[in-house]
């Protein structure tokens, strides 16, 4: 297969970036998108050019590191898949493919396609946990959890922190990410004692990081590789309102 790539190149956070054209040939339909970029990079290196910088690690769709905005879609055209789990058979021979980084004020560009998602860590640090020190736990089965709730909590906990929801949102809102963690904890008995504080603290940190407001467009859910549901955002809104009332 043969493709025309238009790739965002930007030397560092403060540099001016632009789309650069690359032609690539001899691509196998069973290659992953990242393997296609590997092939291109190997060629660039051997020509003495600067390879394209991008984030990736597990290449199994679980670490949340890969992050390409491909032809107008976060993680590309395949539904419910990360960039590393996107295969070239999804494209037509001869396609022109645009490859850009996540774009959001809260995710500054590091280089080319790699961005800084430290804001997500700081949101978790603000409240996305249960305050239990090592060694303080009781026997695990002393705390039964209704299966239905455990399953729902697991659905929310499946978030990989990739940031596609932010990249897909025209407001660059982080609501889906934040709501997934708030929901997981709100659904479990372990999360109850800090329920109020958590919702308030995480939302406050989210705002401080410069993420936009949620206007319910649903773009985040549509592009989330782990199919995190919008119902989590509804739950976060309820949690937040309740918490605000209690906090008053």
């Amino acid at each position: 297969m043969k493709f025309k790539l238009k790739v965002w190149r930007q030397a560092n956070q403060n540099a001016q970036g632009k789309l650069v054209d690359y032609d690539i040939d001899g691509i196998n339909a069973d290659m992953s998108f990242l393997e296609m970029v590997d092939v291109l990079n190997d060629k660039l290196i051997k020509k003495g050019e600067d390879p394209i910088a991008f984030d990736h690690d597990c290449r199994e769709g679980i670490c949340g590191m890969c992050s390409m905005y491909i032809s107008g879609r976060a993680h590309g055209p395949q539904h419910a898949a990360t960039t590393c789990q996107l295969y070239m058979r999804k494209f037509k021979d001869g396609d022109t493919i645009y490859v850009e980084p996540w774009r959001a004020r809260a995710f500054p560009i590091v280089k080319d396609l790699a961005v800084d998602r430290g804001a997500f860590d700081r949101i978790i640090a603000a409240g996305g946990f249960v305050s239990v020190n090592t060694g303080q736990a009781q026997d695990a089965n002393n705390l039964p959890v209704e299966k239905a709730f455990a399953e729902k909590a697991m659905d929310a906990a499946a978030c990989i922190g990739c940031g596609a929801c932010v990249a897909a949102c025209k407001n660059a809102s982080a609501m889906l990410f934040v709501s997934a963690k708030v929901s997981q904890m709100a659904l479990l008995p372990q999360g109850q004692p800090e329920r109020t504080r958590r919702a308030l603290a995480m939302v406050a940190q989210m705002d401080a990081e410069g993420f936009g407001n949620c206007t319910n467009t649903g773009a985040c859910e549509a592009e989330c590789p782990k199919e995190i549901s919008l119902t989590n955002i509804a739950r976060l809104n309820r949690e937040y309102i309740n918490a605000s009332v209690i906090a008053e």
């Binding site: 946990f129 249960v130 239990v132 090592t134 060694g135 303080q136 736990a137 009781q138 026997d139 695990a140 089965n141 705390l143 039964p144 959890v145 209704e146 299966k147 455990a150 909590a153 697991m154 906990a157 997981q184 904890m185 479990l188 372990q190 999360g191």
Partner: peptide, 21 residues
């Protein structure tokens, strides 16, 4: 102790219908 600790942190392990692990 590991299982106790992880459950206390909110790790959503698989459960049976009775709510136990």
């Amino acid at each position: 102790n590991i299982i106790d600790q992880c459950v206390a942190q909110g790790v959503p392990f698989a459960r049976e219908y009775g709510g136990l692990l």
